[in-house]
Simulated assay, not measured.
Amino acid sequence: MTPQVEPQQAGTPAESIQRPTVIAFATQKGGMGKTTLSVLVASWLHYKRGIKVALLDVDSSQLSVYNQRISEHEHMDAETAAKLDEQDIEPYKILSGGPGDVPLLLSQLPANVQLVLVDMPGSIDVEGYEVAISKLDYLIVPMETSRYAVTTGFSYLNAIRELDLVPAERCRVVWNRYKPSRDGEIADQLDQSFAQYGFKSLKSRIPQRDSYQDSTNLSTLFPMPTSYLRNSGLKELFAEIESLLLTTNNDGRTTK
């Protein structure tokens, strides 16, 4: 059976991605959606876009993605197994460890992997954090527009830059739990403020939806249903991640 993947967007064929790009959604403030976004991106790009994905779960205090995959296998019924067989695409690799294990985990990935997503711990003070973050091609920081979330997120970005772990030009902010009527103007202003420090914001903004926490959407074996993409900001996010993969492949940068 031929894998059911989405037609490639003009100018972004999976075949043109020759080397892996390492990306993390990360921040120090809990509840910003870093793990949810990691799983949504990994599952959609792997199963629907034909991009070979791997996920490193190094949030060693929880290992929520790694344990999710184990749970999905343990509780798989005949209907789900048949659906997985019909999908005819091997599930993406999920490896687990601590943040200091990232170099070793990267060396253990299949040679054809094109995107590596790293689920980081929620604190920069965890042993090995600097080792993991220094391996990233891009750091994406999810934020809400509340004062506390912005202050925490900006402090985190500054710490990463001052430690010279990820250059500012390879850091991105993504607005999550976004309400246009409430957050539009302030998000625009904050984008301008961040830009003065060299930090870019993604154009996609992800609205608040409780459905993102549904088990159907957070599956590591299947992509979220296409019907959920309408007005979700996720379709735009997926496209922006693809653009980052092409940028990495075209700029000559090599994996650290």
Rank of each mutant, 00 (worst) to 15 (best):
V113S: 11
N112Y: 01
G97P: 08
S96P: 04
L104D: 14
L106G: 07
I70N: 10
M76Q: 02
Y92F: 15
D119Q: 12
V102E: 13
V102L: 10
G122R: 07
Q68I: 05
N67G: 04
M76T: 01
E79R: 00
G100S: 07
T80P: 00
M120L: 08
V118N: 03
Q68G: 04
P91H: 04
S71F: 02
Q108K: 13
E86C: 12
I70Q: 12
K93I: 15
Y129W: 13
L104P: 05
L84M: 05
I124E: 14
H73G: 02
E72H: 03
K93F: 06
P103A: 12
S123R: 15
K83S: 09
V126T: 06
S107I: 09
L117F: 02
D119Y: 01
K83G: 07
P91W: 01
I124C: 11
S107E: 13
E90W: 06
G98M: 10
Q87R: 14
L117P: 14
P103F: 03
Q114P: 15
S123E: 08
D119I: 02
D88F: 14
L109F: 12
Q114N: 07
D125R: 15
L95G: 03
S71I: 00
Y92S: 05
D88W: 05
P121A: 10
D125N: 11
P103N: 07
E74N: 12
G97M: 10
P121V: 00
S107L: 11
H73I: 03
D125C: 06
K93T: 15
P91D: 02
I89N: 02
S107D: 14
A78T: 07
G98N: 11
Q68Y: 00
M120R: 11
S71Y: 04
N67L: 01
L104G: 15
K93C: 14
E86D: 05
E130I: 00
A81V: 01
K93A: 15
A82G: 09
E130S: 12
M120P: 12
Q87A: 14
S71L: 01
P121E: 04
I70W: 13
I94M: 09
D88E: 09
M120K: 07
E86L: 15
S107V: 11
H75C: 00
V126N: 13
A81F: 02
L109W: 09
P91L: 05
E79C: 03
Q108V: 06
D119W: 06
P110H: 08
V131I: 09
Q114T: 09
E79P: 00
E90K: 11
L84Q: 04
K83A: 14
N67I: 00
A132W: 08
G128T: 01
A111V: 14
D119L: 08
T80I: 01
P99W: 04
H75W: 03
V113K: 02
L109S: 13
D101Y: 06
V131S: 09
L95T: 02
A132K: 11
A111K: 11
D125Q: 15
Y92E: 04
E74F: 14
I124F: 14
